[in-house]
Design a binder for these strands. Structure first.
Length: 378
RNA sequence: GCGGAAUUGGUGAAGUGGUUAACACGCCAGAUUGUGGCUCUGGUAUGCAUGGGUUCGAUCCCCAUAUUUCGCC
C-alpha cells in the first residue's frame, strides 16, 4: 500500500500541525525527524537500535545506491527493506542534492546531469526518468522528484530558470513513475525569493504529488533567515492534507522554527555526522566530548535522557573512545543524538496537543542557547 | 680511565651566522543542516643542554661543564 497522511490537529497559536502517516508497517506521528541512512544503513546503527530510539521513516539515497551496489542488485534482493533488514518506512532522496554537491553548473542540461562518480571518477548521466526508475527498483515507500538544488547565492535569473527546469523534471519523473506502492513527492525550490517560491509551490502542487517538500534551504552559505523565509514563502501554497517535508534540516532550533511554520517531517545528517566527530546535543546546547574538561567527568551526557548511551556510559569513557578513535564512539554518540532529536519531536507533538507549542519552544531555546543568550543580552 | 659522536617543543625530527625556528604526530579548540571522504579549519618552542668566549649579530663557530651513546683498556 501507498502511505497516507492524516492531519489531526492544528495548533491554536501557530502553524504547527499534528498528523499521522499511515503505512503498511504501522502508523507514525508527525512532526517527525527522519534519520539519514544514505548507503542503506543509518551509519553505525542497527535496526534494533533504531527501533529502540523510536525512529520512524529513515532515508536512503538514489545516487549512492545506484552506484553501489546498483539498484538491480537491491531489486534482486527483494527491495531495499529486505536488503537492509528494515521493517519501517523508507524515503529515498532522488540524487538531486548530489547535483548541487557533486556536479558543476555547466554539467546540468535540460536532459539531465553529468556526474563524475565520487567512487572511481567515471562519468555518469542521471535524468529525472532514471532517478525515478532507480527508486522504483529500490522500492522505497516515498520517492522524491529529481530536482536541481541551486546554491543560495544563485541570482534571480538563474534561480527562475532552474525552478522551471525542476518543474519540467518533476513532470517527466511523474510520467514514468509506476510503482503503485510508492508515494512520490514534489520539491519546491526558489531560494529566498518570495515570487519564485510561490511560483514553484503553485506549479508543483498542480501536478498533484503525494506530498511536498521544501528544498534548497540547508545549502552551504544559506543563512537561517533565508531558510525561514523560504519556508514562509512556500507553505501558504501547499495543500493542508499532504505531508510537508523540509529537506536536510536538522538543528534543534531549525526543527522548532520549521514546525512553527507548518512543517511535518525533517531529515538531517547532522546527528550522525557530528556524533562521529565527537559532538552531542544536550538540553543546554551542543557540547564537544573531546574537550579536555570531560577527561574526569564520570557523569553521563544527560541525566534525563532515556537513550542507551546515557543509561550506560560516562562522558569520561566516551571521551576516551573518541580520543582513541574507537568506532564505538561514533555509534554511542549517534544513538544519543538521534534519540535527542526524536525526543524533541515527541515533546513538540505533546505541546501541539495542548496548544502551548510556543511556550515549549521558548523554554527549550532559552535552555539550549544558555550562555549565548546571556551574551546577546549584554 | 682513554678516544669518538650527540644534546632543538609533549614526541619524532628539519634547519640557518642576520626579519616571525620547516614538517609530522600529540595536545588544545572550532566547524559540520536532502552524508564522497572517522573529514576540514585554527592554535600550540620569547627559544635550540648549561656557563663562558669570538662577532655588529650566534641555535648555528670556539672553550669548559653536564648528560646520553659508541668503541677500546
Amino acid at each position: 500500500m501507498k502511505i497516507e497522511y492524516k492531519l489531526l490537529k492544528k495548533e491554536a497559536n501557530t502553524n504547527a500541525r499534528l498528523g499521522k502517516i499511515i503505512t503498511k508497517y504501522g502508523e507514525y506521528s508527525t512532526p517527525m525527524f527522519m534519520p539519514v541512512g544514505t548507503l542503506a544503513n543509518v551509519k553505525t546503527l542497527t535496526k534494533e537500535e533504531l527501533e529502540a530510539m523510536n525512529a520512524g521513516i529513515i532515508l536512503s539515497n538514489t545516487y549512492h545506491l545506484w552506484l553501489r551496489p546498483g539498484d538491480d542488485i537491491v531489486k534482486e534482493a527483494g527491495g531495499l527493506h529486505k536488503f537492509m533488514n528494515y521493517n519501517g518506512p523508507i524515503l529515498t532522496d532522488s540524487g538531486g542534492f548530489q547535483v548541487f554537491s557533486l556536479a558543476k553548473p555547466k554539467d546540468i542540461s535540460e536532459e539531465g546531469v553529468k556526474f563524475k562518480s565520487h567512487i572511481d571518477g567515471r562519468e555518469l548521466f542521471l535524468t529525472p526518468e532514471k532517478s525515478i526508475q532507480i527508486q522504483n527498483n529500490l522500492d522505497s515507500d516515498i520517492a522524491m522528484s529529481f530536482d536541481e538544488c541551486p546554491p543560495a547565492s544563485a541570482n534571480h535569473d538563474y534561480m527562475k530558470k532552474s525552478i522551471e527546469r525542476t518543474l519540467r523534471w518533476a513532470k517527466r519523473g511523474k510520467d514514468v513513475h509506476n510503482n503503485k506502492n510508492q508515494a512520490l513527492f514534489g520539491i519546491v525550490q526558489g531560494g529566498a525569493y518570495e515570487d519564485l517560491r510561490k511560483y514553484s509551490a503553485i506549479e508543483t502542487v498542480k501536478m498533484n504529488f503525494d506530498g511536498y517538500s521544501i528544498g534548497g534551504v540547508a545549502n552551504d552559505g544559506e543563512s537561517k533567515e533565508d531558510m525561514y523565509k523560504a519556508i514562509d514563502y512556500s507553505i501558504p501554497y501547499l495543500p493542508e492534507d499532504k505531508i510537508r517535508y523540509l529537506m536536510g534540516v536538522g538543528e534543534p532550533v531549525d526543527i522548532l522554527e520549521g514546525v512553527e511554520r507548518g512543517i511535518d517531517i525533517f531529515d538531517c545528517v547532522l546527528p550522525t555526522r557530528i556524533a562521529r566527530h565527537g559532538n552531542v546535543f544536550t538540553r543546554n546546547g551542543k557540547i564537544n566530548l573531546r574537550n579536555a574538561k570531560y577527561q574526569r567527568d564520570f557523569t553521563n551526557i544527560e541525566d534525563d535522557c532515556d537513550c542507551y548511551t546515557c543509561k550506560n556510559y560516562t562522558k569520561a569513557y566516551l571521551r576516551h573512545l573518541l580520543v582513541s578513535k574507537e568506532v564505538l564512539a561514533g555509534r554511542l554518540l549517534s544513538i544519543h543524538n538521534i534519540r535527542f532529536l526524536i525526543k524533541l519531536t515527541e515533546e513538540i507533538r505533546d505541546s501541539i496537543k495542548s496548544d502551548n507549542f510556543l511556550e515549549y519552544k521558548n523554554n527549550f531555546l532559552s535552555k539550549y542557547r544558555g550562555d549565548k543568550n546571556e551574551i546577546n543580552k549584554k
